[in-house]
């Protein structure tokens, strides 16, 4: 389901685009297309579009794999909200949340030397985006908010 809404704030006209899907990895490709198309329209260059694409994929993959533990029929919402300054993506789910203050930036050298698999998503989101914010209410609504500043 795709909805487009509008509004105003201090940074100009707000545009909203919403995608609601079941929590299947099968939909990652569609989610990436949805977000990159909007990012391209805002005027980001290819490198920044790739960064947004990867950060959103990592957030949604975490929802499917961790919040819902692979259950592919749960709600996954992707909301893109833009004004003249910020490109904001809010990914929400109703699954098992996590404690954001327990997340530490991994020591990559140690991490890689131990050859651990997975768990790199949050590190990537924080590296690729200008702002990353988590709000967790396990079972009710967990929310990951990613922001990229729009070149002025």
């Amino acid at each position: 389901m795709l909805k487009k809404q509008g509004g105003e704030n201090l940074a100009g006209k707000i545009k909203r685009y919403q995608l609601k899907l079941p929590s299947s990895t099968n939909h990652l490709e569609l989610i990436r297309e949805f977000v990159t198309n909007i990012a391209r329209g805002v005027g980001f260059d290819d490198e920044k579009i790739s960064q947004i694409e990867l950060a959103v994929d990592e957030a949604c993959t975490n929802v499917v794999k961790h919040a819902y533990k692979g259950d592919d029929k749960q709600p996954l919402d992707v909301l893109v909200q833009t004004d003249s300054k910020k490109f904001k993506i809010i990914i929400s789910d109703k699954g098992k949340g996590f404690s954001p203050n327990k997340i530490k930036t991994p020591d990559m050298k140690k991490y890689l030397s131990e050859m651990r698999v997975g768990g790199l998503g949050i590190y990537l989101m924080q590296t690729l985006m200008d702002e990353v914010d988590f709000k967790m209410e396990p079972g009710k609504k967990n929310r990951v908010q990613l922001v990229k500043y729009i070149p002025q």
Partner: peptide
């Protein structure tokens, strides 16, 4: 055309 950390993780495994 595209790779995410899930793809990179395969090589680590």
């Amino acid at each position: 055309g595209y790779i995410s950390s899930a793809g990179l993780g395969v090589f680590m495994g």
